[in-house]
Design a protein around this nucleic acid. Structure first.
Length: 368
DNA sequence: CACTAGATCCTGGAGTAGGC
DNA sequence: GCCTACTCCAGGATCTAGTG
């Protein structure tokens, strides 16, 4: 998930659940919502919401996981800040247990912890919550760990921190908390990484929404275009310095082109190149399509591979393999040995296979 | 009666004054 | 200058009045 927070559940938060709401004895609360503390929800996660006027209603898809190993319960709700109210609330209507699992939410008690994941850039559109119950054996270690880092009612948690906790506790594979850490694998999966697909499948329970996949596709596309943009700006610098005669961003005009750029060096030599971008580390596997392989193997023009990694909004690193022709030729010969009627559309490559140049720092223009 | 908006209660943190 | 205690305030938790 893009943005995550932990919230210690209060009595009045839990009345969001029908079973808890109906079983209140002393001091009954009528609140049918979960409070979202604004110092985290607005100040840290969605500062844009400060500008919103009173009476804001943000429709969201709500995916409920847990308590324990329980899989996604999908609902439509809204995040509301009513006129004059100080509180942001996840609102809508009471959450009823599913017919197939009527006791699902019965174990929740005040003091239990919600891991809240939010997707959406400037306003939230998807809310995933894993309810971690102190009373359940499978949640006990995680609850203890979350409790120990919670110093207030609600606080932000970074994915690195969550990943560290989850890895250290060695939770069972179907635990829904893994869902909150699938971003990198989901992006790799939509790009066709078979290993990533299997990892996502292993940790995603029975539900993987088209919404989640669409978000990952968008992110993958964004990373791809951001990498190409940085490389394009890098070429412009080289042209200004006289080290390059010309560069043409081919894939911007033609999305199915089997290469991204065509550049002309100072000595008039023309070469093609493809940009492989990732927001992760250099070692992350990348993919080459069959069309790209065939173009690489073409003897006519040089074909380079530009690996953009550690990509952020502002900068990235770049390493280059200058000539992919021999690699592509040999690989295509091997692929030709497959039985008739069988072909490979895409291959996954470990960067360690290639002789990459030293890293070059890339920066967004005007961000000096 | 159900639902919601908004009022009120309550708690914890920040700021500040006064004593040592 | 440092510590303590008091006050104020923001905002989270809870309650209630109004509306349909």
């Amino acid at each position: 998930m893009e943005k995550m927070a932990l919230k210690k559940l209060t009595h009045s938060d839990l009345t969001f659940f029908k079973c808890y709401f109906s079983n209140q004895k002393e001091k009954p609360s009528k609140q049918k919502a979960l409070n979202l503390n604004s110092d985290v929800f607005v100040d840290e996660l969605y500062p844009e919401l400060r500008k919103t006027t009173a009476n804001t209603k943000l429709p969201v898809s709500l995916y409920i996981y847990g308590p324990g190993l329980k899989d996604a319960h999908v609902l439509q709700r809204k995040i509301v800040k009513s006129k004059g109210s100080k509180n942001w609330r996840l609102n809508g209507e009471l959450i009823y247990s599913q017919e197939t699992d009527p006791q699902r939410y019965d174990s929740l008690q005040p003091g239990d912890i919600a891991l809240i994941g939010l997707d959406g850039d400037t306003i939230p559109s998807v809310v995933c919550i894993d309810f971690v119950a102190a009373s359940l054996e499978v949640d006990k270690k995680l609850h203890h760990e979350f409790s120990s880092i919670l110093t207030s009612g609600m606080q932000k948690i970074e994915s690195d921190q969550l990943k560290e906790i989850v890895t250290r506790l060695d939770l069972p594979a179907p635990h829904p908390v893994y869902r909150f850490l699938l971003d990198e694998d989901l992006i790799a999966a939509v790009e066709g990484d078979a290993e990533a697909v299997l990892r996502v499948y292993k940790h995603s329970g029975n539900v993987m929404s088209s919404e989640e996949l669409a978000t990952s596709r968008q992110k993958a596309a964004y990373i791809g275009s951001m990498g190409e943009e940085l490389v394009s700006q890098y070429f412009q610098q080289l042209i200004n310095q006289g080290k390059l005669l010309d560069s043409e961003w081919v894939s911007r005009e033609n999305a199915v082109a089997p290469y991204d750029f065509k550049i002309t060096a100072a000595d008039s030599a023309v070469s093609l190149l493809d940009v492989k971008s990732t927001s992760n580390k250099f070692e992350t596997i990348f993919h080459i399509s069959r069309a790209e392989l065939i173009t690489m193997a073409n003897e006519l023009e040089d074909y380079a591979l530009y690996r953009v990694y550690d990509l952020t909004e502002y900068d990235a690193k770049l390493r280059i393999v200058s000539d992919m022709r021999q690699f592509a030729k040999e690989l295509l010969e091997k692929l030709a040995l497959l039985p008739d009627g069988i072909s490979v559309d895409s291959i996954s490559c470990s960067p360690g296979l290639f002789d990459f140049s030293d890293p070059i720092e890339l920066h967004t223009e005007g961000d000096e």
